[in-house]
Design a protein around this nucleic acid. Structure first.
Lengths: 85, 85, 85, 85
DNA sequence: TCAGATAAAATCGCGC
DNA sequence: GCGCGATTTTATCTGA
């Protein structure tokens, strides 16, 4: 194999590895999502309203994000004022 | 605590547990997604075209899904014909 | 009517027109969907299995999409290599 | 071609026709959807907020459905009372 | 940083 | 009425 082919081979191999890693992670994500679905199903069986549960989760996430943003803002101010964080 | 309150408490507790489990899984998913992003970044640093990589991944996924659909269709045919699956 | 009101009026009118156009299109879509439903009903009356029909349609659409994806990928490769498309 | 094959052929042909009709309608729906997208794009270019427009359209549709339900209810009452509709 | 594309989540509708 | 599929809406990400 000449140098060019070798280089291409290496390159293709590196690409393949990147792609396979990503595909593996996507599979893992899909598994977790399955699990989420299962839990919603179990909750539904217990009589809970899935739609409402989703609303609650969304609200909690937004609240959390808000808090994080506030904290970042505070940190920014503190830094600008030369205060210890 | 009277019976009603107790019942509500139990119910609320069960709901909380479902929600916390789901939130945990969502966090795990977000972590995996971060990892995916990192890998794309590394690949890009190695000179690969992210857009092309995404397209390749999409195509591979679609091919896989198509095979699964074919299998499901065959199963439906078999079932419709009363054949053992 | 002063200039502001006039401007708002124009704006509101433009918005209304956009919305009405979209609503009209949505109605048309709903009609087509009704028609689709009717055809499935007729096919069922002729003894065909609706579930299988849906699966066939899904598979055919996926095949088509896969071909399109392949073409797009080739275009991306060509572009990356500086080839005329 | 013997009778069975002939019958199957006819059946397959009928199926194909049903499926092609449906696929045609789905394409038409997709076209309309494209048009909807274009209109949203134009509205956006005019400075309107697409997300809000969607909310408005949803609200109007719900209102319309409510009115229709009310009307149906009134018709039902009238019928139950032997009143002319 | 914004538009445009892509992917994910939520909602809706249908057949069983 | 439930599960599955399709559709629609929301969020993320990339390239200009």
């Amino acid at each position: 194999m000449d140098e060019l082919e070798s280089a291409v081979g290496v390159s293709a191999d590196a690409l393949r590895q990147y792609i396979e890693k990503i595909e593996k992670l996507e599979e893992d994500k899909a598994e977790l999502q399955e699990h989420v679905k299962d839990i919603f199903g179990a909750a539904k069986n217990d009589g809970f309203d899935v739609k409402i549960m989703r609303k609650i989760i969304t609200m909690r996430r937004m609240k959390k994000e808000e808090l994080m943003e506030q904290q970042e803002l505070l940190d920014l101010y503190a830094k600008a004022l030369g205060l210890p964080v």
